[in-house]
Amino acid sequence: MAKARELKGRIRSVQNTRKITRTMEMVATSKLKRAQDRVAAARPYAERLGEVIGRLLTPELAARYPLLRQPAAVRRAAVLLLTSNRGLSGAFNANLIREGRNLLRDLRGRGVEVELHVSGKKGISFFRYQGETLGNAVSDIGDRPSAEDAERLVNSLMDGFVAGDFDAVYVVYAKFNSALSTPPTTLQLLPVQAPEDTGRGGEVDYVLEPGADEILGRILPLYVRNGVYRALVETTAGFYGAQRTAMKNATDNAGDMLNALTRTYNRVRQAAITQEIAEIVGGAAALE
C-alpha cells in the first residue's frame, strides 16, 4: 500500500494548489473588473483633451512649443517601461520586457543614447540583473494608479525634453484591447504627436480666453501626463487580465492532473485488493 499512500499525498497537494489558483483567479477577475472600469472612466477626459488640442493646433503654432519640438536628429532618448509589481501572470511581464529590449536595441543600434526608466518590480529586477543603469525606478504604484503617479513618472521626462536632455521619449506599456488581448505597445510620448482634428462639432468660432497659444501651452503638458496615466491604467487592467488567464489555466491543469492521479490511485488500490483476495484464495487452497 506504500504507492497508494504516496499517491494520496500527491492528490492532496494538487487539490491545495488548485484551491489557491482558483482563489487567485477569482480575485484577479474582480480586480480586472475594477481596473476595466477605470480604463473606461479615463476615456472622456482623454477624448476631450485630444479633440481640443487637435482643434487649436495649427502648424504655425506648433513650432513654438518646446513639447512639440521636432529635433533634427535624435541623439538622446528616454524610454519609460511599465511592468507590474507582481508575477503569476503568464508571459505578461516577459512580453513587456521583450518589447522594451527591442526598442532599446533598435535605438542603440542607431547610435542613440538611451536612458531607461522603469515602473514595476518585475521590470526593475530584470534590468538590474542585466546590469542596466536605470534613470528612475518606481515600484510603489499599486493596482489603482492615480494621475499623481503618472505625474511622478513623466514630469522629469518632460522637463528633460524641454531642457533638451532628450530628443524623444517613448513609453512601453500593455495596450488593453480586451482581457484576453493586451499586446505590448510602444508609444511616442514626446515630441507630442498632435491628435487629428476630428472635426466634431464643425467649425465653431470660439472666444479664447486668453489666446490659443497660451491655452495650448498650458494644456499640452496635461495631454502628455494623460498619455502616461492611460498607459498606467491600461497596463494594470492588462496585468489582471493576464493573471486571470494564467490562473485559470493553472486551475484547469490542476484539475486534469487530479483526474489522472485519482485514476492511478484507484487502479493501485484495486490491484492491492485483488492481490489480497488471490493470496487468501491461494492460502485456503493450500490448506485443503
Binding site: A41, A42, Y45, R48, A150
Partner: peptide
C-alpha cells in the same frame, strides 16, 4: 455640464 478629471467623470 460635465466635469471631467483624468480618473473619472
Amino acid at each position: 455640464v460635465s466635469v471631467l478629471s483624468p480618473e473619472q467623470t
